[in-house]
């Protein structure tokens, strides 16, 4: 079978979305719709058959869809998601973190062709890893050899240079929490940063508070990052946020062997498990 064309894939997405709604089990299908700009789409909830015809599939379908499932954690009906490879890893992430229940989801996987988003060049999983129905022929998984190259380059800088770089970045940060809100690993019911009465996180958007936020978020995400790049894509101030989570993944890969997050619902995150035969050489 040959690869599906973009138009045919879009048609199939609409068919599957309509089928899902017609089953009566699904309340809405989350995908993308057009905007007034040809090079932009937006996340869209199709709730009627007519609205399913508004779902699009083109190089600009760049927003993650999975995180919208968290908007209603205790739904009466299933939510259907149109999933690319990265979205499927996001679903695995949230299932593994016990924030979503598989039975509340209906997953329409689409073999992705890469989007107009720089992170897509680094994609290793274009075929969704979890789905109920798959559109397209599974693509061969690719290894992106440059995965940690930027981190290696960055590590060569002196601590002072690295600090100056991040300080300048966090001077730009406007403390909007877009990175957190887009991140599938940021799935806490209540974020520490929203617990203002406790006072973990100051609200002022100054360097100090921005750095505390950035650092805390990075460590909270830790080994759970699925490398979808949403944090960086959504940042209105263009902070290279992936560089923080990638650094941790690089360390994890060096310490614990090859590791990627969100590959399955059952995986044990590198830092979330223990082995009795762990050498514990640092103790």
């Amino acid at each position: 079978m040959t690869e599906l064309t973009q138009a045919r894939t879009e048609e199939r997405i609409r068919e599957e979305a309509k089928k899902a709604l017609a089953s009566g089990e699904v309340r809405a299908v989350v995908g993308w719709c057009a905007t007034r700009f040809d090079d932009r789409t937006r996340p869209f909830f199709a709730e009627t058959a007519e609205e399913c015809d508004l779902l699009v599939w083109n190089p600009y379908c760049i927003n993650g869809t999975a995180k919208f499932a968290l908007d209603d954690r205790y739904p009466d009906q299933k939510l259907a998601l149109i999933l690319r490879g990265c979205d499927s890893r996001a679903v695995n992430r949230m299932l593994r973190d016990k924030q979503l229940k598989r039975e509340n989801l209906y997953l329409i996987g689409v073999v992705c062709d890469g989007k107009e988003n720089p992170i897509c060049e680094e994609c290793q999983h274009k075929t969704p890893l979890v789905y109920d129905v798959l559109i397209g022929e599974p693509a061969k998984e690719q290894i992106y050899p440059e995965r940690f190259r930027k981190i290696e380059e960055f590590e060569k800088l002196s601590p002072d240079e690295r600090y100056a770089y991040w300080a300048a970045q966090y001077d730009k940060c406007i403390h909007c929490y877009a990175c957190r809100n887009a991140c599938p690993a940021c799935n806490c019911i209540e974020c520490y940063a929203d617990q203002y009465r406790v006072g973990w996180q100051g609200k002022a958007a100054d360097r100090e508070q921005n750095q505390i936020y950035g650092l805390t978020r990075a460590f909270h995400v830790g080994d759970r990052c699925i490398e979808c790049g949403e944090c960086e894509r959504v940042c209105p101030m263009h902070l290279p946020i992936m560089r923080q989570t990638r650094k941790m993944l690089k360390d994890i890969n060096e310490l614990f062997g090859s590791y990627e997050g969100g590959l399955s619902e059952e995986e044990t995150p590198a830092l979330g498990g223990f082995r009795l035969d762990d050498p514990d050489e640092f103790m």
Partner: peptide
Amino acid sequence: DKVTKGCIGCGTCTFV
């Protein structure tokens, strides 16, 4: 209900 579904609830719009 419809126009707010795609929002991710960040503060970008208000800060810019």
